[in-house]
């Protein structure tokens, strides 16, 4: 069975209408159909957070959302953070604090951080820890990430 459905949604500010396979996750759709490859796959069971994107303003694991579910919704991926080539404040802070190493978890980490700063303007270490605990970084940039998110919140 390979059922398709038409859906309309906004991705990084652009309206789109697409036919999607109902069997596909949002992660697969973002990467293979929208070709937004900044969103990464790391576990496909919602444990690593590499696929974190924002859906209607909230961070979600795109491996645990079906592509069809975004009908009528607003999707923001890492590619939507830069405007006219200008990095957002979190991206800049991640660079300043070297808050990444291999960079594979980074897009998901930044999306979770962005969602945090949208709901909590001045997060404490504990807020940051809670918000990012679903984003695994095996390189162990956690200390730098905490510093970067704090610094970004002050900008």
């Amino acid at each position: 069975m390979s059922e398709k459905m038409a859906i309309s949604f906004t991705v990084n500010g652009n309206r789109e209408t697409r036919e999607v396979e109902v069997g596909h996750t949002l992660l697969k759709f973002i990467r293979d159909e929208l070709h937004l490859t900044g969103t990464k796959s790391g576990c496909e069971i919602g444990e690593c957070g590499a696929c974190t994107v924002m859906l209607d303003g909230k961070p979600v694991n795109s491996c645990l959302v079906l592509a069809v579910e975004i009908d009528g919704k607003e999707l923001l991926t890492i590619e939507g953070l830069t405007e006219n080539g200008e990095l957002d404040r979190i991206q800049k802070a991640f660079i300043d604090h070297a808050a990444f190493q291999c960079g594979y978890c980074t897009p998901g980490m930044i999306m979770s951080a962005r969602a945090l700063l949208e709901r909590t303007a001045n997060p404490t270490d504990e807020d940051i820890n809670q918000a990012l605990s679903g984003n695994l970084c095996r390189c162990g940039a956690y200390q730098e990430i905490r510093e970067a998110v704090k610094a970004a919140s002050k900008k």
């Binding site: 979600v60 694991n61 645990l64 959302v65 990012l132 679903g134 984003n135």
Partner: peptide, 9 residues
């Protein structure tokens, strides 16, 4: 339960 993004769903 789970992480923040999980709890959003």
């Amino acid at each position: 339960v789970g992480s923040y993004p999980i709890r959003n769903r």
